[in-house]
Design a protein around this nucleic acid. Structure first.
Lengths: 196, 196, 196, 196
DNA sequence: TATGAATGAGATTTCATTCAT
DNA sequence: TATGAATGAAATCTCATTCAT
């Protein structure tokens, strides 16, 4: 009873994930998703309300964890700079655990209620970065420069989760990136303070 | 005769640019493009073979200049490191001159023969970067690390051309980015050499 | 055993009545009916053969009473004119007792085997009315005029059962309507006899 | 040039009119409309924005005339009672000229922006009728009774336009209906004044 | 040079119904 | 008694493209 489970729903979720990854939400075809799952189009609507509901069912869990984590992290990182490293490790672990789902959320979610995830995450990081600038180069904050380095940093994460790296390899890459970014940031601070 | 030119073609190119920017190639609607240009769909097919030909006509010239420039730059940058700065300035000038067209090429060209532009550009940069690594940390090259920093750097360019900055402002941002990247790169080299 | 009756069937009938009233037979959704009844679609097919059978189960009893009554009434009204008033009272009582069911039968039954109920009822009334004309203006019967006044009279009944009136109020309205109709009819007879 | 006119649009309008008459707006099938017009589904969308636009294109002109007429009539009828007869004649002429279109507007327009036409027309007539009651039986107005006789009267118009009568025949029916209604109304007034 | 007309395929979604359990 | 799963057809609408004029 509890487990007759012909697996259709799971096949739809899997097939949907692949289709969304390949074509993005808007250009994904429910026909193809169903065909690849081996069911008719109508069957999908037994399990999901509509296209977006299917998408949401794929990214829902990772998204919840993501929200929870970045909220905690953002707070801690301002209060206790030394926590940043730990936070970053946690984030990386989460991203690597649900790599495909995060690619969907951050890059394939246009025309979805999730379409602002990336923007919101960047906005968050921009606030944190602005605070750092304020600390080390008070009054010299440059909005565009902040956007620039946040954008690069986030791209770094995206690059990592697009690869086939193991968790260990990904962690190492993230460390390198931190190295790179911190040195870059320090140099920028020096440069800016020198300018005025 | 040679110049009766009611401007239809130009209006189609302009209207197409806007539509492609807003919706990407695949989700752009030729109907909307024509409606916004004030002509019927049939007219478009007098000037262009099909949707992709219209896209190509918009990005063609900038693409040619782009190819030419990066080819020259890549060569020079290996031979003469000090040329890098000049090359980068030239690239920035080109990108800023045709900002919208490059956004189309690099981010809106899926399902087009141009869809690999970004990948190819990165591949180019990766070669250059690998050469640098070979020079300063011989035998320690890490393919994924190279992909990572190239990806970040390219994202920097994209961030810049997405803004409303003047050419001057963009140049300044690019300088900051170079600063940031060079300091980061140096630190990576030190780190890597230390590790072995 | 004979009476375990979890009430499912009754809930389906009630839910169906509401859905049919709101959307008519053809646009009613069995899914919504089942959802509102708190059961799955399959359950409906245990109790009813199909959509139309559900509809029939809702309107069946009132329909039987209706048929029986109008048949008796039509007969009596020709033989004994004075019985008309009593017949009309009985009809009103029936209509008011099953207001919603009669609305279904007369106005929401398109694409159902009941779709001709209203037409048949009118045809009946037309015969009766024609007999009256024959009596008071022999040989002057006008088919279209008969259709016209029958249609208006029936509309009067429909208007009454669409309201929220109590039985008492409805009865009063019906009386007024009789008044109105009889005076109108008399005037028509006078007019017609005058014409020839 | 100006008139190549293969007639497709007219065929669609005609086919649409028939389909809407038969099934009502909501249950009309664009597929059937197009099939009966001998074109593919897509062709319809060259001429009309959507289903409702097609409907509107069928009923638009008659509706405009209708609005204009009832507005003028309502005003005149209160000021000058003797104008009522002329107004009614004008209305009948309009209704008979566009019989099918008015059936669409008044009985087949559910789920359309025109769905309240009938209700609004009745509301108008109710106001006029209430004024009459106020004049001949002051303070005795009965809202439900007014609704009842208005509903019957309007049904009379509908019955007339549903027939195959010539304009002349229809006019005669309308005259009879006026006769009937006026006599009925007078009797109601007498009855009501007697009651108090 | 351009229009107006039309096609045919595809999109998402809803539907009544069936059936094994 | 009922559920959960699935079908297949139909719905409205949009699309890139073609073609005669």
């Amino acid at each position: 009873m509890a487990e007759q489970d012909s697996g259709t729903k799971e096949r739809l979720l899997q097939s949907g994930k692949e289709e969304f990854l390949q074509h993005g939400f808007q250009n994904a075809s429910l026909r193809r998703i169903c065909a690849n799952a081996g069911v008719t189009t109508g069957a999908l609507y037994f399990f999901f309300r509509n296209k977006e509901d299917l998408f949401g069912s794929i990214v829902g869990k990772p998204l919840a964890a993501y929200h929870e984590l970045i909220e905690r992290s953002a707070k801690k990182e301002i209060e206790d700079v030394s926590s940043a490293t730990g936070n970053e490790e946690n984030l990386m672990r989460l991203l690597m655990t649900y790599r495909e789902e995060f690619i969907l959320l951050l890059e394939k979610s246009a025309d979805t209620k999730y379409e602002n995830c990336l923007t919101e995450y960047k906005a968050n990081l921009e606030k944190v970065t602005a605070a750092f600038f304020e600390k080390y180069a008070p009054g010299q904050a440059n909005g565009r420069l902040i956007q620039l380095i946040v954008s690069m940093r986030v791209q770094g994460y995206l690059e990592i989760i697009h690869g086939n790296d193991t968790l260990e390899e990904a962690m190492k890459l993230a460390k390198y990136m931190s190295c790179y970014a911190e040195a870059g940031f320090s140099e920028l601070i020096r440069q800016i303070n020198q300018e005025c």
